[in-house]
Design a protein around this nucleic acid. Structure first.
Length: 570
RNA sequence: UACCCGGUAGUGUAAUGGUAGCACAACAGAUUUUGAUUCUGUUAGUCAAGGUUCGAGCCCUUGCCGGGUAACCA
């Protein structure tokens, strides 16, 4: 028996591993790794990779997944990113125990292996400048031509590489190249650079090195050192696999299998680190953790749960096909989990004052409200009710269309957990805008049921004016207004697709008083509206701030939209 | 352009030569003190052409379409 949570999910990668286990390829051992470069914050695409790598490890007996920082480019990397990555992986619910590695920890071994390659005549020092090297590499139809350094002797190469390490050369003066095949149709095999000179400080190794290994060279050896059995990466590395294999074969060391899968694309957002960094640096968003960002920290701040992110990753699957996942799939996973776990409360975002004419003055009463209909153990709470309350502006229409069930003159509705009320008067300001309603209530309907069995079509949420907690509420919409913001003509910047209305800040929202004690980060369902959480950065007891994580499904809004689209409706 | 990879309902994915299934979306209905949730039902798919086979989404060939690669980034 298996619960839905642990239901088996299979994909082509898991199938390969299963087959390897069956044939005893690695004696049943399964070792994966999550290898981020610490040059940015993790986003939901990384979550897919994290869930894949850690998930596979946990599904196999004795399986392990390492966290390894691919930190071979000190110019772009920083400890700030290292720390955030660790926090995000942990928050997502995964544990790498003591297996926290850095490619930079392997710099000595990497150097020795390069010496081995040189001694085998499989690597050489090359002093072609970058632009010349590009030229010498050839084109799609023409093979590359050998650089002058290609024929250097082993001794000379050994000496040159040693001097590169010792800092005798300026940046760009020399590189170390693998000697493979200048005529290969695969450009990565046309004598790729494996070491370059960089006189820069590294966030971990300090000034010890002035030569740094390249990704292709570093990654396969790092995997090998860690005895990774299955090295899972994204599709753009497919063309690198022959190089990955070549290096390990020449070095005659443990040979992991590289497997590529399609990275995640999602509608209404961008996923490239470069673009996300641009949005942060250009102040298009408030930071990496802006709740509109697809970053893990952004979604965390928005109120998304790790459970729903994991469920999402399971839902989208793993393939080699480039696809675009609809954002509603994510939203659905979020609603799914929050619906089970979030306590219900009442909050009015756009308050409309309602005076209940026949309710006694200077008194109030406490009504029982259920905390979570999906979780009996969540219990109930008391909500204060009094003569003046607020309801949502949207819940009243003076001249309602046919299917509008909510409040309008003469209509009776239920106030959730309270009473039936009937609208008897509408107060307007000089502009004709409704500013206050007068209602009467039926004392017999206390708690929300009519003893005479009469029904109402709508139940409204409300907050007592005298007891209300004032709060700021931030409503978020898609960061971009088009489903595929990167799909722009060549002369157009993707940022022109930024949604100018992605953030809406509401102040003077009225919340039920129980929310006074809400901890930063805690999540609630505001009944009939959506899921909200207390902002972890800017909310204070004196000035509470709530973020809307996601709306509830809203059939009425959809109907309204349909009517708008065909104004000829009956 | 050369090379590599891919193409299954609107979207995301199963089917390892043997009944094309699931989820989301959409639509219709039931229930409902959240127009939520829940439940039921409906719509809708193998890129194309040829070949192999008793049998092809799956294998082969060609074409079409999409993506990737051509940094001293990862």
């Amino acid at each position: 028996m298996s619960t839905p949570e642990e239901a088996k999910s299979s994909d082509f990668i898991r199938n390969i591993i299963q087959e390897d286990n069956r044939t005893g390829k690695h004696q049943g051992r399964v070792m994966t790794r999550f290898p981020p470069e610490p040059n940015g914050y993790l986003h939901i695409g990384h979550a897919k990779s994290i869930c894949l790598n850690f998930g596979i490890a946990s599904e196999n007996p004795g399986g392990l997944c390492n966290l390894r920082f691919d930190d071979t480019n000190p110019e772009k990397e920083d400890v700030e990113y290292v720390d955030s990555i660790k926090e995000d992986v942990r928050w997502l619910g995964f544990d790498w125990e003591d297996r926290e590695y850095f490619a930079s920890d392997y710099f000595d071994q990497l150097f020795e292996h390069a010496v081995t390659l040189i001694k085998k005549g499989k690597a050489y020092a090359c002093d072609l400048p970058a632009d010349k090297m590009r030229e010498y590499r050839g084109t799609a139809t023409e093979p590359g031509k050998p650089s002058p350094g290609r024929s250097r002797s082993v001794e000379e190469n050994l000496d040159l590489f040693e001097r590169m390490k010792n800092g005798e050369f300026k940046e760009g003066e020399f590189v170390l190249r693998a000697k493979i095949d200048l005529a290969s149709p695969n450009f990565h095999m046309r004598d790729p650079v494996i070491y370059r000179v960089r006189h820069v400080h590294h966030h971990r190794t300090g000034d010890k090195w002035c030569i740094y290994p390249m990704y292709d060279y570093t990654h396969c050896i790092s995997d090998s050192i860690e005895k990774v059995t299955h090295s899972i990466c994204t599709l753009e590395f497919e063309d690198h696999r022959p190089l990955y294999d070549w290096i390990l074969e020449e070095l005659e060391i443990f040979h992991p299998q590289q497997i590529e899968f399609a990275r995640l694309n999602m509608t209404y957002t961008v996923m490239s680190k470069r673009k996300l960094l641009e949005l942060v640096k250009g102040d298009y968003v408030s930071g990496w953790d802006d709740p509109r960002m697809p970053t893990i920290c952004g979604m965390r701040r928005r109120g998304v749960t790790p459970e729903s992110l994991r469920a999402f990753c399971k839902t989208i699957g793993v393939t080699k096909f480039n696809s675009m996942t609809d954002k509603v799939v994510l939203e659905n996973c979020i609603r799914d989990h929050l619906n089970q776990t979030a306590p219900r409360v009442m909050g009015v975002l756009n308050p409309l004052r309602v005076v209940i004419d026949n309710y006694p003055e200077d008194t109030s009463e406490e009504l029982d409200a259920i905390n979570n209909p999906n979780d009996e153990s969540a219990g109930s709470r008391k909500v204060p009710f009094s003569k003046v309350i607020y309801i949502e502006k949207e819940d009243f229409m003076e001249d309602p269309p046919k299917k509008f069930f909510r409040l309008s003159p003469g209509k009776e509705v239920r106030l959730r957990y309270a009473y039936f009320v009937t609208c008897v008067d509408v107060v307007k300001d000089e502009n004709g805008e409704v500013i206050e309603l007068h209602c009467t209530y039926d004392p017999e309907t206390r708690g929300g049921d009519a003893p005479d069995g009469r029904k109402v079509k709508a139940t409204l949420h409300w907050v007592s004016e005298a007891h209300a907690l004032d709060a700021e509420v931030r409503l978020y919409d898609h960061l971009f207004s088009t489903p595929d913001p990167e799909d722009v003509p060549e002369d157009v910047d993707y940022k022109s697709n930024l949604n100018p209305e992605s953030l809406q800040v509401l102040s003077g929202c009225k919340l039920e008083p129980s929310l006074k004690e809400a901890e930063p980060g805690s999540r609630f369902q505001f009944e009939r509206l959506g899921y909200f959480c207390v902002d972890t950065r800017e909310s204070t007891p004196g000035k509470p701030v709530f973020n809307r994580t996601v709306t509830l499904r809203d059939t009425w809004a959809r109907l309204e939209k349909q009517q708008e689209n065909q104004p000829k409706g009956k």
